[in-house]
Design a protein around this nucleic acid. Structure first.
Lengths: 161, 161
DNA sequence: GTCATGTTTGAATAATTATGCGGCAAATAT
DNA sequence: ATATTTGCCGCATAATTATTCAAACATGAC
């Protein structure tokens, strides 16, 4: 068809501007705009545009463009391409005190470690603050050290040896 | 069941560490780890964890963790309703744990927000520490979250909608 | 023109994912 | 203790999404 590019553009706009929760909804909007296509084609278009359906906080699902706020996602994909290759994180030690964890790293590594933790935000972790060689991790209330350790261990590959 | 929390944690780790492309694959890994569940339960778990399946660069699909924190997620969704509307102060989310509050901001905004809070020094607030996109607020002892929220809300106009 | 090659598509269907319903057990209330 | 609520889960199935296959069309070489 001669208007595939225009269609893809329209799909992008629909995704960005409205909150659609199924391909059929998108399809309907496209039909309203005069595009004539089936769900099969739409599925392929979405794949090409790398548009994803994610569970939303209201208990249903939403289609989103991964580029919006996506740095973490891309990173994660890169990482999972080579799951065995671990990025040496300069990790040295971790200790707990109350609702805090203190991670020591080699000088200069704290920021990147904190960034990795923040980008994945396990629900047990409220946030992090990094200096040069220390990351302070603030834990959710009622999270015990065991649980926190589980949540944090993915970011400290050195622990898995 | 007593092991749901552990299961969710395992799911998160599987998502982060390996490249899975269907629920059945995740299910298989979980079974290998000794968890006994069906696809139905896994689907519900993924929904709760807000894990999404996105089209990957290699032409297939990958499950990923969306990166933003709890309250932040709501904000982000709100924003996608009105994509043009900007966040004035860079505020994204606030959460409490014990005598701490963790405020997430857009990158670069943490410092100015912390400065605003510090320079007004409400008595409920002992002090703040800012990274790039996170402000750690240390609360007075015996201040509850409600009170702290009241003391902090003047600095987060976005909450007053 | 014919032929080969590649792209795009719909119909049908396969594959995958979400959910209504009922059961069960733990927690909470009476 | 008994009743009620609440959360979790499997089964079966609905709903949704991806893909196979064949066909239509375009493009460019010859």
């Amino acid at each position: 068809m001669k208007n595939k590019a225009a269609r893809l553009q329209s799909i992008r706009e629909i995704i960005i501007h409205s909150r659609v929760k199924s391909q059929d909804e998108i399809l309907q909007k496209l039909h309203e705009q005069g595009f004539d296509l089936t769900q099969a084609t739409l599925s392929r278009d979405l794949k090409q545009l790398r548009i994803a359906k994610v569970p939303g906080s209201d208990g249903s699902y939403v289609y989103i463009m991964p580029e919006i706020g996506s740095v973490g996602k891309l990173m994660q994909e890169k990482m999972s391409e080579n799951p065995q290759r671990q990025i040496p994180g300069g990790f040295i030690s971790i200790n707990f005190s109350g609702n805090l964890a203190v991670i020591k790293t080699r000088p200069g590594y704290a920021g990147s470690l904190a960034y990795d933790i923040d980008s994945n935000t396990p629900p047990e972790i409220l946030g992090t603050i990094a200096g040069d060689d220390t990351v302070l991790v603030i834990l959710q209330e009622n999270i015990n050290h065991q649980q926190a350790m589980l949540a944090l261990s993915p970011f400290m590959p050195e622990l898995h040896n």
